[in-house]
Simulated scan of single mutants.
Amino acid sequence: MRKVLTGVTVAAFAVGVAVTGGAGVASASVPHDHDIQTVRVSGDAQGTHFSTTTLHEGAIRFDISTTNPNGTGVTLFSLHRGVSLSMLGADLAEEFSGSPDTAAKGTRDIQRDVTLYGLADVNPGTPVSATVSLEDGTYYSFDSNSGQLPSTANVTRLTVRESRGGDSRWRPRPGHRIASVALTSSDRFVVHGHLPAHGSVLVKNVSDTLHFMLLQPVQPGTTDAQVQAFLASGSSDQPPFAVDGPSVSTDVLSPGKKLVLSYSLPKGTYVLLCFVADDTTGMPHAVMGMHKVITIG
Rank of each mutant, 00 (worst) to 15 (best):
M1R: 00
L5Y: 06
T6L: 06
A11Y: 13
A11S: 13
A12I: 11
F13Y: 15
G16M: 11
A28D: 04
S29R: 11
D33M: 12
I36F: 04
V39T: 05
G43M: 02
Q46C: 02
T54P: 02
H56K: 15
H56C: 08
E57C: 12
T66R: 04
N70V: 12
L76C: 10
S78R: 13
L85W: 10
E94C: 12
E95W: 14
D101E: 13
A103D: 00
K105S: 05
T107I: 01
R108S: 03
I110M: 13
Q111R: 12
L116T: 10
L116P: 12
G118D: 09
A120N: 03
N123T: 06
T126F: 00
V132D: 01
Y139Q: 07
F142N: 03
N145T: 02
P150Y: 03
T152S: 12
D167G: 02
S168W: 04
R169T: 14
W170Q: 06
A179W: 03
T184A: 08
H192P: 02
P196N: 15
P196D: 14
G199S: 14
G199F: 14
S200M: 12
V203P: 04
H211N: 13
F212V: 02
V218Q: 01
T222K: 09
T222L: 09
Q226K: 06
Q226I: 09
D237L: 13
Q238P: 01
P239W: 07
P240A: 06
T250H: 07
L261R: 01
S262F: 04
Y270W: 09
Y270D: 00
Y270I: 13
A277L: 04
T280L: 10
P284A: 10
A286R: 01
I296G: 08
I296S: 13
